[in-house]
Design a protein around this nucleic acid. Structure first.
Length: 388
DNA sequence: TCTGGGGTCCTAGGACCC
DNA sequence: TCTGGGGTCCTAGGACCC
């Protein structure tokens, strides 16, 4: 419900008054990001193509995702949680894990359900966002309990009740079990947690491999030793776009690639990071998805170098298969901190991918855009076109 | 009904090193 | 003339999550 809530808070007189509200899917080729509960009653689900959603619920109003506002509200929620829990992990824009281990003395006589409700109310009061909380001694238990807490409630599973609690769910309710695994499970006649918990561990390991079998055996019993990781380190930054109509022209693709490269570059610099790996992703008109990546000897941060690497990768992908392109994306990974290199080069300055001048220019452009808007400065042409 | 955009994690094969 | 065993890093693809 997060996206629906934010859309309503941002536009109280418009989206805020629409009971049947769909967020996302602004183009004819898009999907629904989130639907209000009233719209879900018509069978609309997130991830559903917009065309299909409109058919199921023609009266519904569709509004775009308020991206910036969602990021802001998410940060606000995160800040409140950080005040109430020693360990907070952001699992996505609208989902957080709290580890309250060690707070028993501080909480005194308050039981877990009271704590959960206090957190829920505190978030509501300072951010206007309604959240649901699930609680338990194991991560998977807390996660699944959240389902029962929705909307805007709490559900705490007492210690010792984990295995019994899990038996009410279908395997499709468990995190980490998606469409592919569900098909494999159905082949063995398994659809529910209860059915699976009755199968011996050795059989699960034989059917699904030792690692997955053991994992499944534990999950259906509510066993999950994974820790809440509060480090919250970003591992990749990417930007991709599905075109309104497929694009087959190389120059047009390069123009789109330039915009995407600038977008990820700016995000990268905003986080004071550099990237060693640049990846280009293509989805062909027949929905085949391909990607090519290149890991550079040092971290880079300028649009110029990112775009140069991306262009070479785009040509490699187009050379392998040349059909109309539905989606184009640029990704950055292998992220390293933006600290200036302090290591001395034994043999003098080697060839550098980008110079200090490149970086200064890129940051100056960022400043201008921050102050005067994104279109205040734009690339005038495609630079550094390699030989073809 | 014709399939978004942002991510994380895992696997398998190959290059390369000692 | 044919060939080990340990390891790291990179690449591509895929499953999965919200």
């Amino acid at each position: 419900m997060f996206f629906v809530q934010v859309a309503r808070l941002e536009d109280p007189d418009g989206a805020g008054r629409e009971p049947l509200l769909l967020v996302g899917g602004r183009s004819n080729r898009g999907v629904i990001t989130s639907a209000s509960y009233a719209a879900r009653a018509f069978g609309v689900r997130s991830g559903m193509p917009t065309m299909r959603a409109r058919q199921l619920c023609p009266q519904a109003v569709v509004v775009p995702v308020p991206r910036g506002a969602c990021v802001e509200r998410s940060r606000a929620v995160r800040a409140v949680l950080g005040d109430l829990s020693p360990v907070v992990q952001a699992a996505s824009i609208d989902e957080f894990y709290l580890d309250l281990t060690g707070t028993e003395r501080m909480l005194g006589s308050e039981d877990l359900a009271e704590t959960a409700d206090r957190i829920r109310r505190a978030v509501r009061e300072s951010t206007e966002v309604a959240v649901s909380l699930g609680g338990g001694t194991q991560r998977v238990v807390a996660k699944v309990a959240t389902r029962l807490a929705k909307p805007d409630g709490i559900h705490v599973v007492p210690p010792g009740d984990e295995a019994a609690f899990m038996t009410r769910f279908r395997l499709s309710d468990l995190p980490g079990i998606g469409a592919a695994f569900l098909r494999q499970l159905a082949d063995k006649g398994l659809h529910t947690v209860a059915e699976t918990a009755a199968v011996e561990r050795a059989w699960l390991e034989r059917w699904f491999g030792p690692a997955r079998g053991a994992w499944l055996w534990e999950r259906v019993r509510g066993i999950d030793a994974s820790e809440v990781d509060a480090s919250n380190r970003r591992k990749s930054i990417s930007s991709e776009r599905t075109f309104f109509t497929d694009v087959d022209d190389d120059e047009e693709l390069e123009r789109r690639l330039l915009k995407l490269s600038c977008s990820v570059g700016q995000q990268l610099r905003g986080r004071e990071l550099r990237a060693r790996t640049v990846t280009v992703k293509i989805r062909d008109q027949d929905f085949r998805t391909r990607q090519a990546g290149n890991t550079l000897p040092e971290g880079v941060e300028t649009d110029r170098v990112i775009f140069a690497a991306a262009t070479a990768l785009l040509h490699r992908l187009r050379h392998r298969r040349r059909t109309a392109v539905r989606l184009l994306g640029v990704g950055l990974s292998n992220l390293v901190r933006q600290a200036p290199s302090t290591q001395f080069d034994l043999f003098g300055e080697g060839p550098k991918l980008e110079t200090e001048r490149d970086r200064t220019i890129a940051r100056a452009v960022d400043h201008v855009r921050d102050r005067y808007g994104r279109d205040a400065l734009r690339p005038a042409r495609v630079l550094d076109r390699p030989e073809r």
